[in-house]
């Protein structure tokens, strides 16, 4: 516990962490300010116009559905038109609708938090390995796995806690904007359940990014090693291999890309068409969890295994 508290003190005192936190707050501030500036509380006239448009849309959809069923197309196909009833907020222009926009905003927030977590975790161990701070610590606690494990646990707990607080404040800020200068939309139990699950999965994404950054920097003994790993992966695999898959006409190239699984994890499920456009397949958050587990075992497990036996400068 003493070691964890000491590590936490070191983490929060790092200038890089402070800088990243300022950038995080600035990015959130810009997003909130932009939303406030581009939204207004709908006037009675706008609401009345929206209600008229809803009635018109309902009539149009009903007509299309009847035509569809008359042509005896499959019931599932016709169901597409009746899947979701038009709502007033669909026709309120220049109005921030919390229920419709918060999910995409949360994705943006998590992307930033994941980047934050990756860089902070990588620099937390990378700088210590480069500067000799780790050596100093090991002279006090000559238990390598304990020291490295405590460092990882501390940075994971810190970034996840910060992300949880940031998520609550961020979502709360947009809810307040909706209440004051927009509309909340339909906030039923299903909406909140989906939002909580999305935020929960996205906190997992933050922890994954932090662990990968930490592991890569430990393996490479430098913060830059983690950045190099990401850059190399992105260029060689996400871009290079994707081109090769297209050239050789591989059926399902998205299945082999980490970015597909990141998308599946954040959204819960994503669908892809194969190269020939005649077969659709889904990747779910469970597939993503399996891929993340393999990546963590390789990079974080490898980092601990090598750190146990490595000669330290």
């Amino acid at each position: 516990m003493n070691l964890a508290l000491a590590e936490l003190s070191r983490l929060v005192a790092r200038r890089f962490v402070l800088l990243m936190t300022v950038l995080l707050v600035a990015a959130f501030g810009v997003t909130v300010a932009t939303t406030v500036a581009s939204s207004h509380r709908p006037t009675a006239a706008e609401v009345a116009e929206a209600e008229r448009e809803v009635l018109f849309a309902q009539a149009r959809i009903e007509q299309i559905r009847e035509d569809c069923e008359r042509q005896r197309v499959s019931p599932e196909f016709c169901e597409v038109y009746t899947e979701r009833e038009p709502r007033i907020e669909d026709y309120l222009y220049g109005v921030f609708v919390f229920s419709q926009e918060i999910t995409d905003l949360v994705y943006f927030m998590i992307a930033f938090l994941a980047l934050f977590a990756f860089l902070v975790a990588a620099s937390f161990v990378g700088a210590e390995l480069t500067s000799g701070g780790m050596t100093n610590l090991l002279l006090w606690r000559p238990q390598r796995v304990t020291v490295l494990g405590t460092k990882l646990a501390t940075v994971l707990a810190a970034v996840v806690a910060l992300s949880a607080v940031a998520s609550v404040l961020y979502i709360g800020a947009f809810y307040a904007i909706a209440e004051v200068g927009g509309v909340p939309g339909v906030l039923d139990g299903e909406f909140w359940r989906d939002l909580v699950l999305t935020v929960g999965r996205d906190l997992g994404m933050v922890a994954f990014a932090a662990a990968i950054g930490f592991g890569a920097a430990t393996l490479g003994r430098h913060t830059a090693a983690a950045l190099g790993l990401v850059a190399t992966y992105a260029i060689v695999w996400e871009i290079g291999a994707r081109i090769v898959f297209e050239v050789i006409e591989a059926a399902t190239p998205d299945r082999y890309m980490l970015s597909s699984y990141i998308g599946a994890w954040m959204a819960g499920e994503v669908s892809f068409w194969d190269q020939y456009g005649d077969r659709q397949y889904e990747l779910t958050w469970m597939h993503a969890a399996a891929v993340f587990a393999v990546a963590l075992a390789a990079i974080v497990g490898g980092a601990f295994a090598t750190f146990r036996h490595r000669d330290l400068a």
Binding site: L3, R10, A13, R15, G133, L137, W140
Partner: peptide, 16 residues
Amino acid sequence: FGNFSGRRTLRLLARA
């Protein structure tokens, strides 16, 4: 760690 004072450095080591 350059941003810590000498006293804080020793306190952290003492705690660890």
